[in-house]
C-alpha cells in the first residue's frame, strides 16, 4: 500500500500569536514551528499501516526551505521519503493543486491529511485534493480500519458518529483517536538524516482567496468572583447581567 501524508508546518500550540505590518502579516519572530498535531496523528496511522513491509509512507509539504526541519521530524517518526513542493502556500486551492498534481503522477492508495491545520483552521486542503483527483473523501475521521482494498471509517457527526465504508483510493482527514502519536526514537532520528527529501518546483495556480487583515480578540474584563457561600449570586448575575440564562 502506497500512502501519502500531507504535512503542514504550524506554530507550536503554546505560541503567542501576534501580527506585524499593520495587522496584515503573522509575526513569526520567536515562534517555534511544529508538524500540525492532526497531521502527526495521520502520519502515525500511516506508519502503523505500513509497518512490517506492508506499505510505504511518503510525506508531502508545500512550503519553502524553512519547513525542512518539520519534514525531517516526519521522517524521524517513520515516513520513508519526503517531497517538498517549493512554494509559500497562498491559499488552500493552491496547496491542494500542488498535492493533487504530485499524487496524480504517483498513484497512491491512501492519502491522509489532518482534519484541519491549527493555524488557519480551514479544513479545506484534503477535500479539494480528493475533488481534483475525483476520489472519495472523509473529512473528520475518528477511526480507520483497512482490509484489502476496503476502508471502514468512523466519522464525527453532530451528537454522534457515522460508520461508512469505501474502496481505496480515498482521502481521509484524521482527528484525535485515529492513532496514538508516535514519538521518534534515536534510530528514527539518525536515519531521518539520510532518507530522501525531494524538492520539486510548484506549478502555476491562481489564487482565489487571501487574508487581508488579522485581529486579536479583545481581552475580557477582569473576572467577577462570587463567594463560594453565595452561589445564588452567580445565578442572578448570569440572568440579570450576562443574560445567558
Amino acid at each position: 500500500m502506497k500512502i501519502l501524508v500531507c504535512i503542514s508546518n504550524v506554530p507550536d500550540t503554546t505560541s503567542k500569536i501576534t501580527f506585524t505590518n499593520d495587522n496584515t502579516a503573522f509575526n513569526t519572530a520567536g515562534v517555534q514551528f511544529i508538524i500540525n498535531p492532526y497531521d502527526e496523528i495521520a502520519l502515525s496511522k500511516a506508519v502503523e499501516l505500513a509497518e512490517g513491509g506492508k506499505g510505504t509512507v511518503t510525506v508531502i509539504n508545500v512550503g519553502d526551505a524553512s519547513t525542512d526541519a518539520t519534514i525531517r521530524k516526519a521522517l524521524a517518526i517513520g515516513a520513508d521519503n519526503a517531497v517538498r513542493i517549493n512554494a509559500v502556500p497562498r491559499d488552500a486551492w493552491f496547496v491542494a493543486n500542488q498535492i493533487a498534481n504530485y499524487a496524480r503522477d504517483n498513484a497512491f492508495d491512501l492519502i491522509l491529511t489532518g482534519r484541519e491545520s491549527i493555524d488557519y483552521n480551514g479544513a479545506q486542503v484534503g477535500s479539494i485534493v480528493a475533488e481534483l483527483l475525483n476520489i472519495p473523501s472523509v473529512s473528520i475521521a475518528k477511526k480507520i480500519d483497512i482490509a484489502a482494498d476496503t476502508v471502514s471509517i468512523e466519522r464525527e457527526i453532530e451528537g454522534g458518529k457515522e460508520v461508512l465504508t469505501a474502496k481505496l483510493p480515498i482521502v481521509i482527514g484524521t482527528a484525535e483517536g485515529v492513532a496514538e502519536p508516535k514519538i521518534p526514537n534515536m534510530r528514527g532520528i539518525m536515519s531521518a538524516r539520510t532518507k530522501p527529501l525531494e524538492v520539486l518546483e510548484a506549478t502555476d495556480v491562481d489564487t482565489l482567496a487571501h487574508i487581508v487583515h488579522y485581529e486579536t480578540p479583545a481581552p475580557r474584563g477582569t473576572v467577577k468572583l462570587v463567594d463560594s457561600a453565595e452561589v445564588d449570586k452567580l445565578v442572578s448575575l448570569l440572568h440579570d447581567e450576562a443574560k445567558v440564562i
Binding site: S127, I140, L208
Partner: peptide
C-alpha cells in the same frame, strides 16, 4: 457543520470558487 466541512471544499473546487470556512 461536520458534514458541511466535507462538502464545502468539494463544491468550491467544482465551481472554481473561493471558500471562506467558518
Amino acid at each position: 457543520s461536520f458534514s458541511g466541512k466535507g462538502l464545502a471544499p468539494r463544491i468550491a473546487a467544482k465551481l472554481h470558487a473561493a471558500l471562506a470556512d467558518g
